[in-house]
Measured scan of single mutants.
Amino acid sequence: LEELEQFAKTFKQRRIKLGFTQGDVGLAMGKLYGNDFSQTTISRFEALNLSFKNMCKLKPLLEKWLNDAE
């Protein structure tokens, strides 16, 4: 859980630094990986307001997006 919290915090900082909005991330993930995510979902991930199971599902996809974006 602590690792997920740290990743969510780091993800948000890096996303902002790269100049992407939460909506941008959701759209890009849909185009790149075929998984559409709403701005709300990205927001809830960053705020740790998703279930643990959903957080765990999203984390590898967001890590991949972040690596591709950088």
Score class of each variant (00 low, 15 high):
Glu5Ser: 09
Met55Ile: 06
Lys57Val: 11
Arg14Gln: 06
Asn49Ala: 11
Phe52Gly: 08
Leu48Thr: 13
Arg44Pro: 00
Glu5Gln: 05
Gln39Leu: 10
Phe45Asn: 00
Asn35Ser: 09
Lys57Ile: 08
Thr21Lys: 07
Leu32Pro: 03
Gly19Asp: 03
Glu46Thr: 00
Ser43Trp: 06
Glu46His: 00
Arg15Phe: 01
Val25Ala: 08
Lys31Gly: 07
Leu48Cys: 13
Val25Arg: 02
Leu62Asn: 00
Phe20Asp: 01
Glu3Gly: 04
Ala8Glu: 00
Lys64Val: 07
Trp65Cys: 02
Phe20Glu: 02
Glu5His: 05
Asn49Met: 06
Ile42Phe: 01
Phe45Cys: 02
Gln6Tyr: 10
Leu61Asp: 07
Ala69Ile: 10
Gly30Met: 11
Thr41Gln: 10
Lys53Arg: 14
Met55Trp: 03
Gln6Asn: 15
Glu5Ala: 11
Leu1Ala: 04
Thr21Phe: 01
Leu48Phe: 08
Ile16Thr: 10
Lys64Tyr: 03
Glu5Asp: 07
Arg15Leu: 01
Tyr33Arg: 06
Arg15Met: 00
Ser51Trp: 00
Leu27Ala: 15
Glu70Ala: 01
Glu5Thr: 12
Leu61Trp: 09
Leu66His: 02
Leu1Tyr: 15
Asn49Pro: 01
Asn35Tyr: 02
Cys56Gly: 09
Ala69Arg: 14
Lys53Trp: 08
Leu62Ser: 01
Ala47Asn: 15
Thr21Tyr: 01
Trp65Lys: 00
Ile42His: 00
Glu2Thr: 04
Glu70Trp: 15
Gln13Gly: 06
Lys31Glu: 15
Pro60Leu: 07
Arg14His: 04
Leu27Pro: 03
Leu27Gln: 13
Leu32Lys: 15
Thr10Phe: 14
Phe52His: 15
Trp65Ala: 02
Cys56Thr: 14
Thr21Pro: 02
Lys57Gly: 06
Ile16Tyr: 05
Lys57Leu: 12
Ser43Asp: 04
Ser43Glu: 12
Gly26Lys: 06
Leu50Phe: 14
Glu46Gln: 00
Arg44Asp: 08
Trp65Asp: 00
Arg44Ala: 14
Lys9Thr: 11
Thr10Ala: 09
Asn49Asp: 15
Leu50Tyr: 10
Ile16Leu: 12
Leu18Arg: 05
Gly34Thr: 04
Thr40Pro: 10
Leu58Met: 14
Phe7Cys: 12
Gly26Glu: 11
Gln13His: 14
Asp24Pro: 01
Met29Gly: 02
Asp68Pro: 02
Tyr33Ile: 11
Leu1Met: 15
Glu5Val: 11
Leu61Cys: 04
Glu63Val: 06
Ala47Glu: 15
Glu3Leu: 06
Ala47Cys: 15
Ala47Thr: 14
Ala8Ile: 12
Phe7Met: 03
Leu62Asp: 02
Lys31Asn: 03
Ser51Asn: 06
Leu62Lys: 00
Gln39Pro: 12
Ser38Gly: 14
Ile42Pro: 00
Ala8Lys: 01
Lys59Asp: 01
Asp68Ile: 08
Lys31Pro: 05
Phe11Thr: 02
Ile42Met: 03
Leu18Cys: 06
Leu50Glu: 09
Lys64Gly: 11
Lys31Asp: 10
Gly26Pro: 03
Leu27Ile: 12
Ser38His: 08
Leu66Gln: 03
Met29Ser: 02
Leu58Thr: 07
Gln6Trp: 08
Cys56Leu: 11
Leu1Glu: 05
Leu66Phe: 03
Asp24Thr: 06
Lys31Ile: 02
Glu63Met: 10
Pro60Phe: 05
Asn49Lys: 09
Gln13Ser: 12
Phe45Arg: 00
Phe52Pro: 02
Tyr33Lys: 08
Asn49Cys: 06
Lys57Phe: 10
Leu1Asp: 05
Lys57Glu: 12
Phe7Arg: 02
Thr21Ile: 01
Leu58Arg: 03
Arg15Gln: 01
Ser51Pro: 13
Asn49Phe: 03
Arg15Ser: 00
Ala28Met: 09
Phe11Asn: 00
Glu3Thr: 04
Lys9Ala: 09
Thr10Pro: 00
Arg14Ser: 08
Leu61Arg: 13
Cys56Asp: 08
Ile42Cys: 02
Met29Gln: 02
Leu61Ala: 10
Thr10Asp: 07
Leu1Trp: 11
Leu18Val: 04
Ala47Arg: 09
Phe37Arg: 02
Leu1Val: 10
Lys53Ile: 15
Gly34Glu: 12
Glu46Leu: 00
Leu61Phe: 12
Glu63Asp: 02
Arg15Glu: 00
Leu27Ser: 08
Lys59Tyr: 07
Glu63Asn: 04
Phe20Trp: 13
Phe37Asp: 13
Leu66Val: 13
Pro60Asp: 09
Arg14Met: 06
Lys57Ser: 12
Ser38Thr: 14
Ala47Lys: 11
Phe52Gln: 08
Glu3His: 09
Tyr33Ser: 09
Met29Leu: 11
Leu66Arg: 01
Leu27Asn: 05
Asp36Gly: 06
Asn54Arg: 13
Gly26Arg: 06
Asp36His: 07
Gly34Trp: 03
Leu66Asp: 00
Ala28Leu: 09
Lys9Trp: 05
Lys12Cys: 09
Leu32Ala: 12
Ser43Ile: 07
Lys12His: 06
Met29Asn: 01
Asn54Gln: 10
Arg15Lys: 00
Leu58Gly: 01
Lys53His: 11
Leu32Gln: 12
Glu3Lys: 05
Leu58Phe: 11
Leu62Tyr: 07
Lys64Asn: 11
Leu18Asp: 01
Asp68Lys: 11
Glu70Gly: 05
Gln6His: 13
Tyr33Met: 05
Lys57Cys: 13
Asp68Val: 09
Leu18Thr: 02
Arg15Tyr: 02
Leu27Gly: 07
Lys17Val: 08
Thr41Ser: 13
Glu46Tyr: 00
Leu32Gly: 06
Met55Ser: 06
Pro60Lys: 07
Arg15Gly: 00
